[in-house]
Write a protein that binds this DNA or RNA. Sequence first.
DNA 1: AAGCTTTCGCTACGAGTCGTAGCGTATATG
DNA 2: CATATACGCTACGACTCGTAGCGAAAGCTT
Lengths: 206, 206
Amino acid sequence: MTELTTPRRGRPRSADADLAILAATRAALAEHGWGGLTMGDVATRAGVAKTTLYRRWPSRNELVVDAVAVLFDDLEMIDLGSLRADIEAVVQQFADLLALPESQAALLALFAEATRDPALRQRVREAIIDPQKRLVHQGRAAAQARGELPPDADPEVAAQDVDIIFDTIAGAVEHRVLVLGACADPQWISRFTTLLLAPLTALHQD
Amino acid sequence: MTELTTPRRGRPRSADADLAILAATRAALAEHGWGGLTMGDVATRAGVAKTTLYRRWPSRNELVVDAVAVLFDDLEMIDLGSLRADIEAVVQQFADLLALPESQAALLALFAEATRDPALRQRVREAIIDPQKRLVHQGRAAAQARGELPPDADPEVAAQDVDIIFDTIAGAVEHRVLVLGACADPQWISRFTTLLLAPLTALHQD
DNA sequence: AAGCTTTCGCTACGAGTCGTAGCGTATATG
DNA sequence: CATATACGCTACGACTCGTAGCGAAAGCTT
């Protein structure tokens, strides 16, 4: 998040303030959306001066990245005994997460801002997007252990497979939940999983 | 776009101004991005007073919808003789379209704004997103004519299939091009098409 | 041609947010 | 105790917003 390099000399920054600011940011996002998010409001909610925000985060964008990133820590791949069940469970978790008002308000706006700010885009990827690829890796490993999927032949090809599967899952859920604003009901998830399952076993034939 | 109901009495609105404003909006988006888009700038570029903008569009969001929507009119499904070729061509067109600076600047920001504005979300869907489903319909029809796909058994099921396929394609390309900012090279498109092709033929088995 | 109606360009305005600077105070280290 | 940093507070110029008011331009109606 911020730097904790040298044990500096003067008064240290309050760690409570960090948590309060991030929580206040999420609350403000949920209540007023991205457009209604003002630094003054966040500061007031957190019981902190506006200047304190600017001492810790260079701008609103970076602040929101840190505030939202923690939401994604809860995602986990639980081995349910079948590839279909595992996929459906993870997709459901992901869809529920994106349905939160904080996520709705923050994610697309962050992605939009990142369009013109390469540093922000990298930060978004590192803090929010890329870590979730672990879920695909875990799901594949579990399926391979069960014999549902063949073991990785070429590690490079396997990495590409993971990337494109992740792009597809993430993109479809983003489109469904964030862009369209439709709920990801179990029926949709079941159909989408069906769409995914065939190539997962067939992709190695070419 | 706007209303052209009754042939009103006084001075009619300049149709040239409409086109100039929409073109100026796209140019301003491409140059300064969503955050740098100001109504004053658009007005100056279009050679028009700022008040004229507000007489025609209630806010920046609706203006941008109309400015960007026309870009999507160029998408078309050309029968190339095989389902794979058709999918790849359409995905390539879509990816190229999203790679335009105007699209990069506008689309995700519009989606984000629509998150908190149901009327805007509906307008975005009607003007930008939903019309593109025609491409999936045309691709399916062509594949069915060729015998690559079985004819629709239940029209309701067919409609759901089209929806979920569209969500998946649109979402994956949006994620790849807009969110990640990665180019959609032919190799990625080929892999993604492989991912799609199996279920297109297998989805009717359940 | 005369008259009416609506649009247009221009200017000005209050409101709101931005990000920064300055100050005195609080809280840590050596 | 001296030093160094963080903190809260206030104030500030700059910017954009969306609106109101005005006189002039442009088309329709009789």
